[in-house]
Simulated assay, not measured.
Amino acid sequence: MAISKKGMRRITVDERVYLWRSFDEYDQGWFNGVQVIVAALDQEMFLRYGLGQPDERRTAVVSRGRGAPGIRTACPKFERDGEVFTPQVVRDLIDWGLAVAL
């Protein structure tokens, strides 16, 4: 299945293209509130991270491969002060996701 590119930003990490976007959503998935979703263009990795999570319960969802289930795992804080999410923060999230998913 193809990934919809509408509203997505593009970032390249280690010669692999990823699409990402932030959005605000409640009662529809893994996190409530502002979230960031990252998908490898080749659909070999998906990440989802909720902004503003409490330190003691901060998690992200990582999925490796098409159709693989998402695994919720503890993670570091990625957003900067004031809940800012920049391309560098997305790159940090991708690097973390690759290390966790291997």
Rank of each mutant, 00 (worst) to 15 (best):
D81C: 08
A68G: 10
V34A: 05
D27I: 09
F23K: 10
F31D: 01
D42C: 07
I37S: 07
D14P: 00
R64M: 09
Q35V: 04
I94A: 05
L102Y: 11
E44V: 09
E56H: 14
S63C: 08
Q88M: 12
V62N: 05
Y49M: 01
E56M: 08
D92N: 14
K77Y: 02
W30I: 04
I11H: 03
R9D: 12
G67Y: 12
R58N: 02
V100S: 10
A40T: 07
F78Y: 09
P69Y: 15
L51Y: 03
L41S: 10
E56A: 13
A39C: 12
V61M: 10
E56P: 02
G52F: 03
D81V: 09
V61T: 08
E15R: 11
V100E: 15
M45F: 08
D27W: 09
V100C: 10
R16T: 10
I3T: 13
R80F: 04
C75D: 06
G29F: 03
S4Q: 11
M45K: 08
I11E: 03
N32R: 02
I11Y: 02
F78S: 05
E25R: 13
W20L: 03
S4L: 07
D27P: 00
R10N: 10
L51K: 06
E83L: 12
F78C: 07
E56Q: 11
S4F: 03
V62E: 04
D95E: 14
F31P: 00
W30P: 01
V100I: 13
F31L: 07
A99W: 06
W96P: 01
I3W: 05
G33M: 08
I71E: 15
